[in-house]
Design a protein around this nucleic acid. Structure first.
Lengths: 193, 193
DNA sequence: TTAATATGAAACACATAGTTTCATATCTTT
DNA sequence: AAAGATATGAAACTATGTGTTTCATATTAA
């Protein structure tokens, strides 16, 4: 008996080759469009056309383009946040700074889209939100700066610095930007006098 | 001869009492709604209802809610940017820091809505954009930090710090936040070693 | 080969933006 | 105070985007 197809199933763990093909096409088309214009100027119909799939099919896989963006960005953001917030730890922050900038450099294409493309403002909010959760218990070395404000300043400074860096035609080398990151963003917060 | 009323006239300089009444009602209703939720969750119909005016009338005065927000914020942003960027000048940055924080404190209600309400992300972009224009020619004291990046970091740090400050139930006194602003946001950029 | 199912397409319901038209109320001007 | 100018409100309309349902078809896994 041919089961009546459910409109919104959970395809995320499917083994069907069609599912993978469709999801990959959507993801590729979406990132492609995000390179060109802001999220709110992209329609689901546009994504579907670009991906060469049916309009309906998009909703079978994702509730909305906003959810899709979150899904795509979530894992990447999590990785970067952990690296970014490790600069708040007890070790030498210069090592952590270099590690973080290096990570972004290795995933330059994706991060460039996420940070400097149409997803930037959405991503920033998600980034700050997650950072605050992760670093909720952090205590700043400088007693004059409230911990929560410290996390906010480090996070937003990190994002702005990376976005600027990725946008350059002829970007500074990793070591250089890592040094600036450490001296201009990290050290003022975690070291003081 | 009763002129055929133009759909979109320039009412911004009108002397008619009805125009002022309408524009004031729209502005008040809009700021009120921005206090409650993000810009993209506010509909023009909602603004019109809240302002107790006709839906059509909104468009007679403003092309869109986005334009309205820009109009409302433009003058305020300009003021704050001049104060914020004067910290980059030759004088003692601590004086400028205090002046800027004081200005925001004096206009707390409006700035609280603009920075911490639903307009935040839109405002931030506008803020950075204007700052870059104003400070295009600024030269950082620290040669290792590119001037444009310096402006970006100071600007975004300023916005984040102010937004956090205005959001607090029991905010730090102006002198305290101005000191943090100077030491954590301004000095790391304009003074280095 | 067969049964399950993901897809595409069409038709739909609904929300919002934005415009046009016209009658009415309110304003400014004399 | 009267008269002409004009801003407003309301209704009807176009256009666009979201999200859903239904069903035939193609693809897949078994």
């Amino acid at each position: 008996m041919t089961q009546g197809k459910i409109y919104r199933a959970d395809y995320s763990t499917a083994k069907d080759a069609r599912v993978h093909q469709t999801r990959a096409a959507i993801r590729k088309a979406f990132l492609n469009l995000l390179d060109q214009k802001p999220l709110d100027q992209i329609t689901v119909r546009e994504i579907a056309t670009e991906a060469a799939i049916g309009y309906t099919t998009f909703f079978r896989h994702h509730p909305s383009k906003e959810e899709l963006l979150n899904e795509i960005a979530a894992a990447e953001i999590q990785n970067l946040i952990e690296l970014a917030l490790s600069v708040l730890g007890p070790n030498d922050s210069r090592d952590a700074s270099l590690a973080m900038c290096g990570y972004v450099a290795e995933h330059r294409a994706l991060w460039s889209t996420l940070l400097t493309g149409g997803a930037a403002s959405v991503l920033r909010e998600e980034f700050v939100r997650l950072s605050l959760q992760v670093a909720a218990a952090w205590q700043g070395a400088d007693e004059t700066i409230p911990p929560e404000l410290g996390v906010i300043l480090v996070t937003s400074g990190t994002i702005e610095l990376l976005a600027w860096w990725l946008k350059q035609k002829d970007p500074l080398p990793v070591e250089k930007i890592a040094a600036i990151f450490d001296s201009a963003v990290v050290s003022p917060i975690i070291r003081s006098s």
